[in-house]
């Protein structure tokens, strides 16, 4: 084996070793690397109930109820399989709309309602001008999502 071959082998092994180690570490911390839980996770009891966590999903069209006197808002979050009701008081991001993907940070109450301290909007990877969106049948931002049957 020439010295060059040997160096190549060492670097190859180093990279492979690092790759395997990283894959194992990422596998071990998989749950912690998830930025949010889905409504299905929450309904299945996978989310922590004692401490804060994040929940992500789509705002169900027609579910947003705003209080008239303050900034309080209540809406239903869905992942198209399960739903969770979220309650929040504060300023919502510009992209918050019905049908929009959002991530809320807070705690699940004993009544099964998620009390959010913070609501962030999540947008998708599609970019198009409004005319195209309309032609494709997106009148608003993804308002096509309707309430799933209970």
């Amino acid at each position: 084996m020439t010295p060059r071959r040997k160096r190549m082998l060492i670097i190859g092994l180093l990279l492979a070793g690092m790759g395997v180690a990283t894959a194992l570490i990422l596998q071990a911390f998989n749950q912690n690397l998830m930025y949010f839980y889905s409504p299905s996770d929450v309904q299945a009891g996978k989310a922590p109930d004692a401490r804060d966590f994040r929940i992500g999903g789509l705002v169900v069209a027609g579910s947003v109820k705003r209080a008239t006197d303050k900034l309080a808002v209540e809406f239903t979050l869905s992942d198209l399989k399960q739903e969770v009701v979220v309650r929040y008081e504060g300023i919502l991001p510009d992209l918050f709309r019905e049908g929009q993907g959002i991530v809320a940070n807070g705690k699940l109450g004993p009544d099964g309602v998620f009390a959010a301290r913070e609501v962030l909007a999540k947008h998708d990877e599609n970019y198009m001008p409004p005319e195209v969106a309309e032609a494709l049948g997106h009148p608003g931002p993804d308002a096509t999502l309707t309430r799933s049957a209970p």
Partner: peptide, 24 residues
């Protein structure tokens, strides 16, 4: 793709059908 993130997925994974209007 591997984890749930606030950041959205990739727009241009293949050039023949990107999730972006051609003018953009």
């Amino acid at each position: 793709e591997w984890w749930s993130t606030l950041h959205q997925g990739a727009t241009i994974t293949k050039l023949d059908r990107p999730s972006m209007d051609i003018s953009m």
